[in-house]
Design a protein around this nucleic acid. Sequence first.
DNA 1: CGTTGCATTGACCTACTTCAAGATTGGTGG
DNA 2: CCACCAATCTTGAAGTAGGTCAATGCAACG
Lengths: 251, 251
Amino acid sequence: MSSPRLGASLPNPAATDDGNEMRFCSTCAFSAACLDQGYDKAALGDLHCLVEHVGPYHEGDVIFREGDPFTAIAAVRAGTVKTYVIDNHGDEHVLGFFLPGEVIGLNAIHPARYPCNAVAMDTVALCRFSFPQMALLATRMPGLQHQLFRLLSEDIGKAALVAGDYSADERVSAFLLTVSRRLAARGLSGRRFHLSMTRSDIGNYLRLAPETVSRVLRRLQNDGILAVERRELEILDLDLLTALAASVLRE
Amino acid sequence: MSSPRLGASLPNPAATDDGNEMRFCSTCAFSAACLDQGYDKAALGDLHCLVEHVGPYHEGDVIFREGDPFTAIAAVRAGTVKTYVIDNHGDEHVLGFFLPGEVIGLNAIHPARYPCNAVAMDTVALCRFSFPQMALLATRMPGLQHQLFRLLSEDIGKAALVAGDYSADERVSAFLLTVSRRLAARGLSGRRFHLSMTRSDIGNYLRLAPETVSRVLRRLQNDGILAVERRELEILDLDLLTALAASVLRE
DNA sequence: CGTTGCATTGACCTACTTCAAGATTGGTGG
DNA sequence: CCACCAATCTTGAAGTAGGTCAATGCAACG
């Protein structure tokens, strides 16, 4: 069974695999933020009325396509999502990878259309939030509004990794380190993990040839920093990796 | 006379060079948006209570510094603002240039501190908006909230120019074309204009050596696309320039 | 004037790309 | 269980866009 595109809204927003139960969704950034702010159960109930658990999507499934009308943002509950655009030469440009806990669709608010494509890299589950409903609710819940501002603001600075003119070693190191940290932030292992994307995808994202990614990984392995086995990855020397990534991540 | 940093709030927010008069500020994106939404004068009055006209800043003046506590965003009324960070090697990385009508400080909401430095490239005047006050007001004015979401969302996708792996010619062309369009959008000439930044700044922003910027400009001049005289610039063949920039701007 | 900062130009160099050839893996069907 | 295939990954050799270095030009300013 494959899920519909994110743009499509389910007939009954509250009807998910959980039924109508107002269960707290632990991976939902907004709920968490609202709890932090000490909101009452009524407000949380409102919030959960506009949440839908969607998925699973399988590898290669389209989550939204460039040009689709914008209706919702979504938090990744499980799996990895890749966003990309196709330029006028027909070449793909990877814009980002989204791991559990991260939010997709934020860059679609302004043009009111998704400005890029999103596909599942593996088996993906999402929390879908109707944006119009959420914006409305945010006028009653300053904490939610602030959380939205925070998420949006956060994403503006995210381009640094890919924007700077750093060496291939620095870029790959910084990429791996941020993936590691993002996984760890969700309680997953940041020391050993599986890369759900190909060398081509990584290279495309970092503006490097896939061969260069391969060579850098080999070098990092020879230096005892990583153990790489195809897409299985273990960080052996976190300090050295951090040092390599330092200039990119400004630490 | 030099203006204080943006972080400092004036004792009397309404006391500007215009006095207490609730004059409509034509370059203020928010006011314009609210008018578009057909808001009443009371709401507009509220909005103008949290606006301060600040400046002038002169070339080299610091508008905010990395680490300053975040209190306000600001729309550029006149002049050009450059934002940049200093990496741990002590090298400057230019993040962006802000022309009249554009908003600075949006990436500071999340960390609650300005994550970069902002300096005036020439004589700069700003509209300062207290962010806490504006966020509060946004809960009562959905149009304002939406405008803020729009501005933030818009900025997320802005990195494309600098992020893609394009040739030096494409990057410089795209840069000049976007500057031209942004000026034109404010009623200034997009055909002939003055670059307020050095070749180094442009190169730094585009991740090119200043020498490369120089060589590209010479090439574009030899091809009859531009007339360049130091920082004075005229676009002679807009179609060719647009064609060169096409892949970067995805048109 | 001399000085200072920016811009240009040329010659050389290097990090990465491109091209081409295997190696490894996983899937599929006999 | 094995053969085959397609996709991915790796590795090497050669090419190039742009960087670096160094010299010079040029305008603004005291």
